[in-house]
């Protein structure tokens, strides 16, 4: 049963092969990408190759536009800070690339910044690909089936869902405070001042809710040791399972080689 648009989730509902992939296969892919980017060769060409592979996978899943948008929001501010800082101040700076009014841009620093940002981009693309193509409920289902501990699956899966109820509570508290004359809008300083009266009821309310929710989960058999079933159907196959193990094995080998130097 697909949720309506009011649900707080980044999932994009499309019928592509990426969406149909088992969440754990995608999680394994993120792990492999991360290890390959940070544990593999440091040449820019290799990193660009990883970037290209990720871009192709994202495009084939119809998520290129959404991923690019999200990526820009994260990478652009980092780019604006990292490029100048490393170009000017990187400790290994030796080769002058250009000089402008006494400000010297060094090749080593610039390359280091580009390499770091590219690695980060590779991992971010893989992560966005996962978030956009995986419904959190599928992730929770997959984790519940895999993890022996339902509590761990809950811990990993619940934060996104509880955001909606938290946001609702914030709005209620703010409305109540507005009704009693507290100004919660306006400039930064005013907003900052209104944080204290917001946080106390929010935190106390959250503590009470956590206690109540843990009771509700217990009485609804969440910690039951009997075999559980699932309403959501996750497509998995022998090929996917093989790919998962293969990706984990490759990641382990890369890490080992990286460790051996």
């Amino acid at each position: 049963m697909a949720p309506n648009k009011t649900t707080a989730t980044l999932f994009i509902d499309k019928d592509s092969w990426l969406q149909r992939l088992h969440p754990l296969t995608k999680l394994s892919y993120i792990l492999l990408t991360g290890v390959a980017a940070y544990g593999g060769p440091s040449s820019l060409l290799y990193i660009c190759l990883l970037l290209f592979c990720n871009a192709v996978i994202t495009a084939s899943g119809g998520l290129l536009k959404d991923t690019a948008k999200a990526l820009l929001r994260v990478i652009l501010p980092l780019l604006l800070f990292m490029i100048p800082i490393h170009s000017f101040l990187f400790p290994g700076n030796r080769t002058v690339l250009l000089e402008f009014h006494g400000m010297i841009v060094y090749q080593e620093g610039l390359l280091f910044a580009i390499s770091t940002l590219t690695k980060l981009t590779v991992v971010l693309i893989a992560s966005f690909l996962f978030v956009f193509s995986t419904h959190p409920a599928d992730l929770i289902t997959a984790l519940s089936h895999t993890c022996r501990s339902p509590s761990l699956a809950y811990l990993l899966g619940s934060p996104l869902l509880l955001l909606a109820s938290m946001r609702e509570r914030i709005e209620t508290i703010q409305a109540a405070q507005r009704a009693r004359g507290l100004d919660v809008d306006g400039n930064m300083f005013r907003r900052f001042l209104s944080l204290a009266p917001l946080l106390l009821p929010l935190v106390l309310g959250a503590i009470v809710e956590v206690e109540q929710r843990s009771i509700a989960l217990e009485v609804r058999g969440f910690k039951s040791t009997s075999i559980k079933t699932s309403l959501r159907k996750l497509s998995d196959s022998a090929l996917q399972r093989f790919c998962r193990w293969l990706m984990l094995a490759i990641a382990a080998v890369v890490l080992l080689l990286h460790g051996l130097g």
């Binding site: 959190p136 409920a137 699956a153 899966g157 869902l161 509700a216 609804r220 969440f222």
Partner: peptide, 8 residues
């Protein structure tokens, strides 16, 4: 509070 928090 009765809601599981893990179902959409």
């Amino acid at each position: 509070s009765q809601m599981s928090g893990v179902r959409y």
